[in-house]
Write a protein that binds this DNA or RNA. Structure first.
Length: 473
DNA sequence: TCTCTGCTCAC
DNA sequence: CAAGTGAGCAGAGAC
């Protein structure tokens, strides 16, 4: 950052109350506050230090918990502050052109929907949408309602009705277009800082219950990638000038690797050590066929089960997502646990631990307190149990990337690189890389990400470089 | 103007 | 009852 731009972001004067606040440090927009101020306040006032501890770890006594604050969260503050201040360059012209394109598509789509429905209505209103689909067109006599008495018209519901009427596909397409336009294509350019010319997000360090970061105003952790139309938005994330490119580094299957390591399941650890595609390896085991004999459908099902395991699975939930009978889903889950017995044991042990201690923890001792784990209400207890299973996995992944970020930042400073770390998206780090530093930074990032935490499974990191965020993948 | 709801985007 | 963690948008209704 040059001498003039050093001052471009206004420092907002903050009182101690404002700084810490009732909601904790999460409300702090770090790009507006010099780090020295935060440190000053914390050092001066033991009460503040205590509050900081309270924010990050509910109980101070335990050794491991304190280290999460001292060894991860506090060192991470200047790293995040730097990323927020740096911001990211957005191609405004590109988004304006794309907006006009989407606008045209939306208008055409709107007209088709009104014609197909035989009535004009507000497509963006779920209430009106439900009435048109289920009362006028009578697409589903057994249509489900929400707790407020409206018809459900979510994507999963509508997808199943697609064969019933041509209008469904068009509605989903319309929804996609308007989501892209309102949330990303039109919103991002308005958030460009007038002086820096870049978009500055805020990373919340103490919002997510698992230890993940969150990003707001704008949220740069949910930029579309899944669909072709959405993916276009990523082309607007560009380097500052022609001397730089975008470098993206992703952990591969980090949460599954972590559950393999935490559970000590030898079969799954072996799958990762052998370097096979994990979902194919799982399909091979669950459906009892050779790796070569795994077809697309088998892999798709295995992938769903692997995700389900991380989230705390039920036969009902899997059946619904795979659109298969519940019995078949139950059989797949049973086969899974037979093949990976220690995963099952790990899940039971984790829930048992939560019942005994009232919390679960990550590899670095980050805790999540599970209040409802002994509830007599089955639904409430079920949620608590899924939280208990998921938190150590998601949280350990958060520990790992946070530690990597601190190490990468330190190494980049030591080497006085021109390149900058600009975003974190849970299992991915994004950089603006100078042409002269491409190979150096690539090696550095892979090294620090792979070696952040030693586990019993190999950790893989994929790196790409390109002219924008999309091309960097 | 504020708050809640439903929906949809990401990992 | 029924898959974890977030954020933002438009509609709808309360104030």
């Amino acid at each position: 950052m040059d001498a003039m731009s050093e001052h471009y972001l206004q420092y907002k004067p903050v009182s101690i109350t404002e700084l810490i606040g009732k909601k904790g440090i999460a409300q702090l927009n770090m790009r507006d506050v010099p780090l020295e101020k935060i440190k000053e306040y914390a050092a001066e006032d033991s009460d503040i230090t205590l509050q900081l501890h309270d924010i990050f770890v509910p109980k101070l006594k335990e050794q491991e918990a304190v280290s999460v604050l001292e060894e991860i969260e506090m060192p991470l503050v200047p790293v995040l502050a730097g990323m927020e201040r740096e911001g990211v360059m957005i191609d405004k012209n590109f988004l304006h052109l794309y907006s006009a394109e989407l606008d045209l598509e939306a208008k055409k789509s709107e007209e088709r929907i009104h014609t197909l429905a035989g009535v004009k209505f507000n497509i963006a209103s779920p209430k009106q949408m439900g009435e048109v689909l289920f009362e006028k067109l009578k697409l589903d006599p057994k249509a489900k309602k929400t707790k407020t008495g409206q018809y459900q018209t979510g994507e999963d519901i509508l997808s199943k009705l697609a064969p019933e009427h041509e209008i469904i596909k068009e509605i989903l397409r319309y929804r996609q277009i308007s989501k892209l336009k309102s949330t990303y294509v039109d919103a991002l350019p308005t958030l460009i800082h007038p002086v820096s010319g870049r978009v500055h997000t805020s990373f919340n360090q103490a919002v997510a219950a698992t230890g993940r970061l969150s990003s707001q105003n704008p949220n740069l952790q949910n930029i579309p990638i899944r669909t072709e139309m959405g993916r276009e938005v990523r082309k607007a994330f560009i380097p500052r000038n022609s001397e730089f490119e975008i470098l993206a580094a992703d952990y591969s299957q980090i949460e599954l690797r972590i559950i393999a390591a935490l559970s000590g399941d030898e079969g799954m650890i072996r799958d990762f050590k052998d370097g096979h595609d994990i979902h194919t390896a799982t399909a091979s085991k669950v459906f009892n066929v050779s790796l070569d004999a795994v077809d697309k459908e088998m892999r798709r099902k295995a992938k769903m089960v692997n995700f389900g395991i991380i989230y705390g699975i039920s036969a009902f939930g899997l059946a619904q997502r795979l659109e298969i009978p519940r019995k078949e889903a139950a059989e797949i889950i049973e086969a899974y646990f037979t093949q990976y017995p220690n995963i099952k044991k790990y899940m039971n042990d984790t829930i048992e631990g939560a019942r005994t201690h009232g919390f679960v923890q990550t590899v670095k001792g980050r805790r999540r307190y599970i209040r409802d784990i002994n509830s007599r209400n089955q639904t409430v207890r079920g949620f608590a149990e899924r939280n208990a299973i998921n938190a150590p996995i998601q949280g350990s992944a958060a520990d790992m990337i946070k530690i990597a970020m601190i190490a990468v930042h330190e190494a980049m400073q030591k080497a006085s690189l021109k390149s900058k770390m600009i975003l974190q998206v849970h299992d991915e780090l994004l950089f603006e890389v100078h042409h002269s530093e491409k190979e150096l930074l690539k090696k550095l990032v892979i090294d620090k990400m792979k070696n952040a935490i030693q586990l019993a499974v190999p950790i893989e990191v994929e790196v790409g470089i390109g002219a924008n965020w999309l091309e960097a993948h």
